[in-house]
Amino acid sequence: MIGGRSRAGWLSVLVALASSALLLFLVGPVLALVGVGGGAGAPQLLHDAELRRVLGLTALTATGATLLGVLGGTPLAWLLARRAFRGRALLSALLDLPLVLPHPVAGIALLLVLGRESVVGGALLAVGLRVVGSPLGIIVAMLFVSAPLYVSGAREAFAKVDPRLEGVARTLGDTPMRAFQRVTFPLAFRGLLASAVVMWARAVSEFGAVVVLAYNPKVASVLSYDRLTTGGLADALPVAAVLAVLALLPLTALRTLRRDEGRA
């Protein structure tokens, strides 16, 4: 018995040590970044017009990508959660593909399809829509790499809603669309919102695909890289610190949503 307790004690110590080491590794660099660069970052935000413009563009393009992702991804997620059809597994695998592709490779694939020399890119240019080197290109790159996260999360949110609840709503007079509006959507809403936040946060932090499709106009990740390569660590630190602090906002929102979801 005493031997068992002693083994359990050692196990607890080992678990605590391993957990602390990983936590320190994950949080340490971010804390160092905010600690070292944060002092300069806040005042720089006030007088660095480029930084403010870039942050605005980043938020705007990430929001645009998220809206498009929600618009197309919600029906797709519902379909994957609720309907059994031939090829569903294949479709799910295809949707996950952008997540496992190296992001510069994703950018190259997009360039191939939407570049000036491509059929689609050429057609878009003909109607005045330039993808490469434009905010539209940034949105496209962000959408490509982050939409699968939304679809996956939204699918899970729909799957959590008991389909029999929709059945009960149908027997109480609802059409399928009305049952969706009154039962499925309200119950899945927090999950959908959380998935949209994850998508937005992922879009904001995207670098690889964006830099291939649209180095300019710059988004925050590209600007921090640009300042690191041109001005060194001293120039990049304040920008990076501001970005790290801003990244905490959607993360905090996400945790709050998930906590409330757990209570409901």
Partner: peptide, 29 residues
């Protein structure tokens, strides 16, 4: 379709709409 059959179904586990109050559940249909 179910909504046109004039039937109401009560499941053993009740399956109340969890986002609505009791009154809203009863008033649903």
């Amino acid at each position: 379709p179910p909504e046109a059959r004039e039937v109401a179904l009560v499941y053993q586990h009740a399956l109340l709409f969890p986002h609505l109050t009791v009154a809203e559940n009863v008033a649903y249909g």
